[in-house]
């Protein structure tokens, strides 16, 4: 890509990542949610991949391990769901039960398992869409110009 775009991207990517993690972590208090924050994180990675090429982005975050991370986050969602079956709260024994203590509203540690599921969903969507784009893209950067998928 152009030199101007490369330099501007190096400034912008950190801000986009910080905003994505902010939306994910504060999803149960402020507008936004795991899906939206995950898409922000994935868009930062994808911007890096578009500007610097696939080989350059592979050095930062490996694509196949990103897929594994997102799959592990999906498994952890099921694990958190089955933890509700144990019956930590009295009289609430069902799948995806809100078993953690509520905490005070408007604070960061509140809402039971909602922030946990938020973070898991953010990781799943972010790394998953990064892996999806990484498998689909053919732009390999400045040096390798052949378009082999």
């Amino acid at each position: 890509m152009d030199k101007t775009i490369r330099i501007l991207t190096s400034y912008v990517i950190g801000l986009i990542l910080i905003f994505g993690f902010y939306v994910v972590i504060y999803g149960h208090i402020l507008p936004g949610e795991g899906f939206d924050g995950g898409m922000l994180i994935a868009s930062a990675f994808i911007l890096c991949m578009i500007v610097y090429g696939r080989d350059e982005a592979k050095k930062r975050v490996n694509i196949s391990s990103a897929l594994v991370v997102s799959a592990i986050a999906g498994l952890l969602l099921i694990v958190v769901g089955f933890l509700g079956l144990i019956g930590i709260r009295d009289g609430h024994q069902f799948f995806l039960d809100n078993f953690l203590p509520q905490g005070d509203p408007h604070y960061l540690f509140s809402g039971g398992i909602v922030p946990v599921l938020n973070v898991l969903l953010g990781v799943l969507v972010g790394f998953g869409f990064y892996a999806l784009f990484g498998y689909l893209v053919v732009w390999r950067g400045e040096r390798g110009t052949d378009a082999e998928p």
């Binding site: 999803g27 149960h28 208090i29 402020l30 507008p31 949610e33 795991g34 899906f35 999906g74 969602l77 099921i78 769901g81 799948f95 995806l96 809100n98 509520q102 905490g103 005070d104 509203p105 408007h106 509140s110 809402g111 039971g112 398992i113 909602v114 922030p115 599921l117 938020n118 969903l121 799943l124 969507v125 998953g128 869409f129």
Partner: peptide, 26 residues
């Protein structure tokens, strides 16, 4: 629930099955 954002509370607690299946679709 204790979460202030009602949309997130509905998506991740009242209708968590729905969100789980969406994640599986992805």
């Amino acid at each position: 629930i204790g979460a202030t954002n009602i949309v997130t509370a509905i998506l991740l607690d009242f209708r968590a099955w729905n969100t789980l299946m969406e994640a599986f679709v992805i």
